[in-house]
Design a protein around this nucleic acid. Sequence first.
DNA 1: ACAGTAACGCTAACCGTTAGGATTTCACAA
DNA 2: TTGTGAAATCCTAACGGTTAGCGTTACTGT
Lengths: 202, 202
Amino acid sequence: MSEQTSRRERKKAATRQAIANTALTMFLERGYDAVGIREVAQAADVAVTTVFAHFPSKEALVFDRDQGLQDRLVDAVTGRGRRWSAAQALRDELHVMVHEFTGEQSAVFWRLVDGSPELREYESRMWQRHADALALAIAADRGRAEPATTDKALARYVLGVFPLAREAPDPATAVDEIMDLVDAAWAAARQNRAAEVPKPAP
Amino acid sequence: MSEQTSRRERKKAATRQAIANTALTMFLERGYDAVGIREVAQAADVAVTTVFAHFPSKEALVFDRDQGLQDRLVDAVTGRGRRWSAAQALRDELHVMVHEFTGEQSAVFWRLVDGSPELREYESRMWQRHADALALAIAADRGRAEPATTDKALARYVLGVFPLAREAPDPATAVDEIMDLVDAAWAAARQNRAAEVPKPAP
DNA sequence: ACAGTAACGCTAACCGTTAGGATTTCACAA
DNA sequence: TTGTGAAATCCTAACGGTTAGCGTTACTGT
């Protein structure tokens, strides 16, 4: 479970954590726009350049832990039991995730995000990244090494659940409504597969 | 056809055009990142503040004429004959538009866009805006004043054609593949409509 | 102990963007 | 014609995220 880490790696990880925690606390207290990078660096007792050595942008400070989301979605497809379809596994996982996001604990976080156009935009880029990763998993599940157009499309539709569910009056219902569409699209993609023709060499 | 325009409006439009044309020319010649806003302003013989009075951001200088795209998609739904479904009308229009974008004339433009992360991101925001407008048209077409979750989802799927078709080996085929998925999703959304229950007043 | 390298620091700048406020240009009515 | 208000443009100065360049410290492996 615990990887072998050198002192250097541990210190680096600690610095990264300290910066992200400091930044998020300050953002929540005073607002994202009202806190500058120079302030964050000073409060975390590091140089501004160190902040950007750990995070590619100011927005990334907020979505510090987004890799886990991507892993959960990919695992839902690759690590599911044989009894469920990929779409069903994704639907289940989406219900859990959306439920987490709409819980009272996450409310302050998403209020912070919704309060800033830059953060909302970064969020949508994040879903896009996760969609690319999910497209790979879906392609593999359908027996392809590279994602085809339909694989990418389906992955996007799945990730589209998050923005739409978050703004829907009843998020859980929204998840089911959208996943019903995805199920139908998925079935259509399965049929087209039979019509595929191997591409002749140019 | 020609609206009644005052001299003031004509001059304003001319200034806007001059700025956009100057900027696009410079970007194409020297690259988007290599040309600063201050340079564009100087070349167009206006103040920097005037540039931002006409365009909300540097990226908007490139996508000067994007409103037309939105109008074409919305019109495809609202102004179609009774013999076609909305999905079919959109498929036809998408074929025309994607064909335009992949023509030799547009190639340099999209190379410029693909060469800059900022422009690619602005492009995706643009599709998102158009998806919101299309969602309204779809909702109206299905007899709703406000777009429901499924309306928004379908609109997004339609707009998702552009990024996916542009990176596909055969764009025209990609359009059909994706619209086949959309057709299936659309049919599924139509069925769910029967299950809708009027919301009781709170 | 020592050399190499990764992490961190400091300074100074670049660039998009905006506030503030002056100045010109136009539309419209007295 | 002239006056008046509004819209368009201009100038200056700054703010905030981001990066380049280069020096310093802390750790790793020998």
